Lab assay of single mutants.
Amino acid sequence: MQRVNMIMAESPGLITICLLGYLLSAECTVFLDHENANKILNRPKRYNSGKLEEFVQGNLERECMEEKCSFEEAREVFENTERTTEFWKQYVDGDQCESNPCLNGGSCKDDINSYECWCPFGFEGKNCELDVTCNIKNGRCEQFCKNSADNKVVCSCTEGYRLAENQKSCEPAVPFPCGRVSVSQTSKLTRAETVFPDVDYVNSTEAETILDNITQSTQSFNDFTRVVGGEDAKPGQFPWQVVLNGKVDAFCGGSIVNEKWIVTAAHCVETGVKITVVAGEHNIEETEHTEQKRNVIRIIPHHNYNAAINKYNHDIALLELDEPLVLNSYVTPICIADKEYTNIFLKFGSGYVSGWGRVFHKGRSALVLQYLRVPLVDRATCLRSTKFTIYNNMFCAGFHEGGRDSCQGDSGGPHVTEVEGTSFLTGIISWGEECAMKGKYGIYTKVSRYVNWIKEKTKLT
């Protein structure tokens, strides 16, 4: 034993070699072989497995989906700052455009905790909710729209109204504003409101030439003092309507412009014939205590009207009353817009006519005020429907199939267009061939041609 100890002390290297040989010859039971080890760690190889990531292109799944990435790591994937920024906006807080917040056709661009709407022409605001041009839906104005110097929408209202708090709607500024039905039992019968379409306001006024200088022999019209197929109006439903009495009662109609003036057809009036105007009328054979009678003290036909040349060209006249009318729910003026808007309103496509005229061709006159909704007829169809001249200051309205029309005794009465609950004068009943005849239409004086003249002559002093 002493000898062994001496050998170990003198030859430590020998001992180490012996131990190493023993270990190498022993069977290893701690580690699995290569094949079995792979069965336990069965993990798919990654895209760049075996390579240094710093030297390969980034992978979106590896960089940002398996674990949260930084902007720089995302930049490695896209290799483009702009594309990385677009991805980053949604990656950080989701897609803010998912709810489609942009209105009126706006395009949404996502941002971090926010979004941006790219608005089409005519709109602005956070969600493109603000109209900035009158060309689109009248700028959301209830009545009139004008573009300011910086191309912003400025709404306005006709006389007797003021802008509401929203700067879009119009509200009454006087007790009985024009064009409004205020009798409670008839307010439910107000005709369907007309909503502004998209309009090209630059070209809204037709490029028409008034044929002022045409000389033409007097034409022989049949029954051209021209509501057939209409309905009984309720008291106060058309408070701007008046009836004219002269040699015979209810020979023509008219509309209240203001307390002192009536507008009617020029062919209705004769110099030297006494005319009485009755406002607030409903049943011409009954006294309903809503009527107001006034005498006409002055007749002003349009300066281009000449019955000797043509009885229905420039067929418009103004009547001055001896005493002002007292405005109330049964006696209310009709609204008159400017030339541009009167023309736009007419193009809405349908209007209402009213009167006490004959209820059928050569038949009896109506006792109760009649009204009828009539569609506008395109000019080409209008011209083809008659052998008589249709001037540019006239328009056609009615039904091709016949059966409904204005008729004798309705002449001078109103053709009105309702705009968001307020009625505007767009025409004056003038003439036609018979009444409600198939293929024939009622012919009306186009008020847009005469609004400046009306307003100039009827100013209240």
Rank of each mutant, 00 (worst) to 15 (best):
Q2N: 11
V4A: 11
N5I: 13
M6C: 15
I7A: 13
M8A: 14
M8Q: 11
A9R: 15
E10R: 04
S11R: 13
G13S: 13
G13L: 14
G13N: 10
G13E: 04
L14E: 02
L14C: 07
I15E: 03
C18P: 03
L20E: 03
G21Q: 05
L23K: 02
L23M: 11
S25R: 06
A26H: 03
A26R: 02
E27D: 12
E27K: 05
C28E: 03
T29W: 06
F31A: 08
D33C: 03
H34I: 11
H34S: 07
E35D: 14
E35C: 04
E35R: 09
N38R: 15
K39N: 09
I40Q: 15
P44F: 06
Y47A: 11
N48R: 09
G50C: 04
G50I: 15
L52V: 06
E53N: 09
E54K: 10
E54V: 06
E54A: 11
F55C: 04
F55M: 15
Q57W: 04
G58C: 03
N59R: 15
L60A: 15
R62C: 02
E66V: 05
E66T: 06
E66I: 04
C69G: 04
F71A: 06
E72N: 15
E73M: 05
E76D: 15
F78V: 15
F78M: 15
E79F: 09
T81Y: 05
E82G: 15
R83T: 15
E86P: 15
W88P: 15
W88L: 15
K89A: 10
K89I: 06
Q90L: 08
V92E: 15
V92G: 15
G94N: 09
G94R: 10
G94F: 04
D95A: 05
Q96S: 10
S99W: 04
N100I: 04
P101S: 02
C102P: 00
C102K: 00
L103C: 03
G105F: 03
G106P: 00
S107R: 13
S107A: 11
C108I: 01
K109Y: 05
K109C: 02
K109H: 08
D110F: 04
D110W: 05
D110C: 03
D110H: 05
D111N: 09
I112C: 03
N113K: 09
N113P: 03
S114P: 03
S114K: 07
S114A: 11
S114R: 10
Y115K: 02
E116L: 11
C117A: 01
W118P: 02
W118L: 15
W118D: 15
P120S: 11
G122D: 07
G122P: 07
F123R: 04
E124D: 10
K126E: 14
K126H: 10
L130K: 08
D131G: 13
D131L: 15
C134H: 02
N135I: 05
K137C: 03
N138P: 03
E142Y: 04
Q143P: 00
N147P: 09
A149S: 10
D150S: 10
N151D: 09
K152W: 05
V153M: 06
C157W: 00
T158A: 09
T158N: 05
T158W: 02
E159L: 07
L163I: 08
L163K: 03
A164K: 10
N166D: 07
N166C: 02
N166F: 02
Q167G: 06
S169H: 06
P172Q: 07
V174G: 06
V174C: 04
P175F: 05
P175I: 06
P175C: 03
F176C: 04
F176S: 04
P177Y: 00
P177A: 10
P177F: 00
P177N: 01
P177E: 01
C178M: 02
G179T: 01
G179C: 02
R180L: 06
S182H: 09
T186K: 12
L189N: 13
L189I: 14
T190Q: 11
A192W: 11
V195D: 13
F196H: 12
P197D: 08
D198G: 12
V199D: 12
V199R: 13
D200G: 13
Y201Q: 13
S204I: 05
A207G: 13
T209E: 12
L211P: 09
D212W: 10
N213L: 07
I214A: 10
T218F: 10
T218S: 12
Q219C: 05
F221E: 13
F221M: 09
N222E: 10
D223C: 05
D223S: 11
F224D: 11
F224V: 11
R226N: 13
R226I: 10
G230A: 14
G230Q: 07
K234A: 12
G236K: 07
G236I: 06
Q237E: 05
Q237D: 06
W240E: 01
V242E: 02
V243T: 10
V243K: 09
L244F: 05
K247R: 11
A250C: 07
F251P: 06
C252D: 00
G253H: 08
I256G: 00
I256M: 03
W261I: 01
V263Q: 02
A265Q: 03
A266V: 02
H267G: 04
C268M: 01
C268W: 01
E270H: 07
T271F: 08
G272I: 08
V273R: 12
I275S: 03
I275R: 01
V277D: 01
A279E: 00
A279H: 00
H282Q: 08
H282F: 08
N283C: 06
E286W: 08
E286A: 09
E286M: 12
T287A: 13
T287H: 06
T287P: 08
E288D: 10
T290E: 05
R294D: 00
V296E: 00
V296Q: 00
V296S: 02
V296R: 02
I297R: 10
R298T: 09
I300R: 03
N304K: 09
Y305E: 01
Y305M: 02
N306D: 09
N306R: 10
A307S: 10
A307N: 09
A308Y: 10
A308G: 12
I309W: 07
K311V: 07
Y312G: 04
H314D: 05
D315F: 01
L318M: 03
L319V: 07
L319N: 00
D322E: 06
V326L: 11
V326R: 09
L327E: 03
Y330P: 01
V331D: 01
V331G: 01
T332D: 01
T332F: 04
I334Y: 01
I336Q: 01
A337M: 01
D338I: 03
D338Q: 05
K339G: 08
K339I: 07
E340Q: 14
Y341H: 05
T342C: 03
N343D: 15
K347H: 11
G349P: 04
G349N: 06
S350F: 12
S350L: 14
G351F: 00
S354W: 03
G355N: 09
W356H: 08
W356V: 08
V359G: 15
F360V: 10
F360H: 14
H361T: 12
G363H: 13
R364D: 13
S365V: 13
S365P: 13
L367V: 09
V368K: 15
L369G: 06
L369H: 14
Q370H: 14
L372Q: 13
R373M: 08
R373I: 05
V374D: 01
P375Y: 13
V377E: 02
R379W: 10
A380S: 09
T381C: 05
T381I: 13
T386G: 09
F388N: 10
T389A: 14
T389E: 10
T389D: 09
Y391T: 13
N393T: 14
M394H: 11
F395M: 01
F395C: 02
C396I: 02
C396L: 00
C396E: 01
A397K: 02
G398D: 03
G398V: 04
G398C: 02
F399M: 07
F399P: 14
H400K: 13
H400E: 14
G402D: 08
G403H: 14
G403S: 14
R404T: 14
D405C: 10
S406D: 14
C407W: 14
Q408L: 14
G409W: 07
S411G: 13
P414Q: 11
P414E: 03
P414R: 00
P414I: 12
H415L: 03
T417R: 02
T417A: 05
V419L: 06
V419N: 06
E420S: 10
T422F: 03
T422V: 13
T422W: 01
S423D: 03
F424G: 00
L425G: 00
G427K: 00
S430H: 04
W431T: 09
G432P: 14
E433I: 05
E433D: 14
C435D: 04
A436S: 14
A436M: 15
K438Y: 06
G442E: 04
E456L: 09
K457H: 14
K459Y: 09
L460Q: 14
T461G: 06
T461M: 11
